[in-house]
Computed example of a mutant assay.
Amino acid sequence: MFRLPRLAATATAAVALTVFVSGPTAAGEPTVRDPRVVARFDFALGQTPENIVLGPDGSAILTLSFARQVVQVDRHGNKRTLAELPAVADPNTPVIGAAAAMGIARSHDGTLYVAYATGTSETGIWRVEPDGSAPVQIVELPADGFPNSIALDEECGVLYVADSVRGTVWRAPQHGGAPTAWATGTALRPLPAPDGFGVGANGLKVHNGAVWVSNTDRKTLLRVPVRADESAGAIETRATGLDWIDDFAFTGHGDTVLAALIMDSKLALVRPDGTHKTVLTAQDGLSNPTSVAVRGNTVHVPSASYFTEVKDPNLLRATLQGHSGQGAS
């Protein structure tokens, strides 16, 4: 996610210049069909869906960034607030200025982990227990950074967080403690002005022995191998030309990805060879999509409406056909 009100007009104009890399449709590759909006939110109340995980019952659990809330949307579109992160006095969050609930991860026991960007000492990872108790900060991250997407590796007991401003992937113990800068480098950093908008590492997933990261400014999808000693291997660029890429999800056990292209209100299918094509657009209901979750043959796409003229933050569901394996949220 990123939100740059002072640059919105410029960025919107740039949409017309967007060029997508695409290749021929491969035999048997996944297709996305039957998109439908299942829940809508109130932009005026800060209900901007930012990130998503799925519950065991198929419900969607979302962060509403500027409302600082975590909400659950059931299969019928009914909404229930699970938690609200504390208000912050004088937030000074880089890029956006306001405090925002960003990435979310879920453990097998239902514990939720939320990345909170505030520009203060409250910046970091917050834990939301299944019993409904108040959220608790368990990891403090630098106030001048921007923790965005988050992923949990329960097998190793660690959390990974993409820092969009510092161009860093942080790693921290699942139960809390001091973070370490697990991966850094040019490939993760934002581009300097005027070439970029100050948003580097953004989306993040743990998949097939690696941490995958999108870089919004550089329009790339990256893979960072996890070595045997759990350190970061050399950063690999797996796809380029992904204009306005935000977060993403894998369609199954392979390396095919569905990526949210936030400014263009598009969902792209990214093939393992790096070529990609558009599979959903604003005409299907997308309104600045921020993230993706896949389970079985169902795709979930939250839209935050940060930039659209008609504000329609929503949750869209669609059917995934022709994929193999269980997707991961």
Rank of each mutant, 00 (worst) to 15 (best):
G203P: 09
A60S: 14
A134T: 09
A27N: 04
V213L: 02
Q174F: 04
G103K: 03
Y113N: 02
P130W: 03
W212I: 08
H207R: 09
V37A: 12
L64H: 07
W170S: 00
L221T: 09
G103D: 03
L315W: 11
T31V: 15
P302H: 09
G285F: 12
D243W: 14
T216M: 06
V114P: 00
S324I: 08
R36H: 15
H300L: 05
G77N: 10
P24A: 12
A259M: 02
K266P: 05
K219D: 07
G203H: 02
A268I: 06
R189A: 12
E155L: 07
K79F: 06
P91Y: 13
A201D: 04
A134V: 11
Y306D: 00
L17I: 09
Q283E: 12
T111S: 08
R6N: 12
K277Y: 13
Y116P: 00
R80H: 11
G119W: 05
G254C: 14
T12Y: 08
T278V: 15
A39V: 09
E236F: 05
A27W: 03
L222H: 07
L221C: 04
S22M: 09
R36C: 06
G296P: 15
T63F: 05
L188N: 05
Q326D: 15
G23L: 06
L188K: 08
E140F: 00
V257C: 07
D195V: 11
T298L: 10
G203A: 02
T120H: 08
D255V: 06
G196H: 09
I125E: 03
W170H: 04
D284Q: 14
G103C: 13
G145V: 06
I235Y: 07
I104L: 04
G241P: 10
T123M: 00
A11W: 06
E230M: 13
W170P: 02
A105K: 01
E155Y: 00
A39G: 12
L188M: 12
N314M: 07
L85H: 06
L64S: 04
S133R: 08
T251E: 13
W126V: 03
G209M: 10
D42R: 14
P5H: 07
R68S: 02
V73Y: 01
A232D: 06
S149N: 12
A234D: 15
A16T: 15
N51P: 03
R68C: 02
G103F: 01
T168E: 12
